[in-house]
Structures are given as C-alpha cells and as structure tokens.
Simulated assay, not measured.
Amino acid sequence: MNKVSSIDKFWHGRRLEDLNEAEWESLCDRCGRCCLVKLEDEDTGEIHFTDVACRLFDAKSCRCRDYPDRQQQVVDCIKLSPQEVSQLRWLPPTCAYRLIGEGKDLPWWHPLVSGDPRSVHEAGISVHGRVAASETDVPLEDYIEHIVKWPSRTPRARKPAR
C-alpha cells in the first residue's frame, strides 16, 4: 500500500453521512480499542476501559474473528453509524470516525495516510500486545481489576525512523 496523495483523501471536507460503505469501512484503522470491554460507573456515568477484549477479538491480528456476523454472536456489539459516532462517549480519541466526525484530519499513523496497515501498531495506537484476556476468561466481578487508562488517551506517538 502506498501513501495517499491529497487527491486520494476522500474524507477531506466530507461528512460521515456522505461516505459510501467501502469508504466508511476503510476509516477503521484496526486499532481494536473499541473491542475492549468498557465499564460505566452507574453513579457518575464515567466510562472505564479495561484490557479485556470481546470474545470475538483476535488479539494477534487486532481483528474480529467473525466481523460479518458479530452482532448475531455478541448482543451488545454496536455497528457504528454516523449518528452513533456523535453520541457514543466511549469512542477512543484516536478513532478515525470520531476524528472525522469532529472535523479533524487523520493522523500520520492511520493506514489511509501512511499507506501501511502496520503503522497503527508501530505508533503504539493499537491494542496489539496490550490485551490481558478475553471476556470469556475473566469473571464479570473481576473486570474492575482490569481497568486501564491508555485506551481513553491519545498517546504521544512519533513517526518511526525508516
């Protein structure tokens, strides 16, 4: 994959609602942050990420094992839409859908910009190497022990030397 030229930046000046399905799907950088289990504090509404992943998440590839049928297998799996992007408080700050929805550009490490699907991992944005367990391996009452801060933050990533 090659770096995109400014002519190829289909997301520039466009609303999420105006993207076709292929464009929409290509915005996902495959970081896996949205596939981490999140907990909501009932009293404050605060969202807490954990290092526990959805049971369909493959931590080695940072992909869903059954993306086309994920909603049939995981009841609370959300298929993102432009409307949900503007309403979901738990989307990571690095999420391309969130960034484009807020009128921002994609960062250098996004595969559509870098031309390299590995750049999201090399920049430390993805969950690669950071998932502690699958939700099938951790009892619900132990999730609180898996709360982590990094998925809700934008890391100070630097371009790797090439």
Rank of each mutant, 00 (worst) to 15 (best):
C77W: 12
H110A: 07
V113A: 09
R63V: 04
L36V: 00
L39P: 07
K60H: 11
R118L: 12
P93A: 03
V131W: 11
K159E: 13
A53F: 03
A59H: 08
R65Y: 09
D142R: 14
C34A: 05
R55E: 10
S61Y: 03
I125F: 09
D137P: 12
I100V: 14
E122I: 08
T136Q: 14
A22N: 12
A133M: 11
T136G: 04
A53I: 01
F49M: 04
W90H: 04
R65F: 04
D105C: 02
G32V: 05
C34G: 05
I47F: 08
L56I: 13
L140F: 14
R118N: 14
C54T: 03
R55N: 05
C77M: 03
C54K: 07
F10E: 00
V113S: 08
E122P: 06
V148N: 10
H128N: 10
G124S: 11
F10I: 08
A22V: 13
A157I: 09
F57G: 10
I78N: 09
S126A: 11
D29S: 07
W108Y: 09
E46Y: 02
P139R: 01
V85H: 01
S119K: 08
V74Y: 13
S134V: 05
L80I: 11
K38M: 06
R15H: 06
C62F: 01
W108T: 07
S6R: 14
R14M: 13
I125S: 02
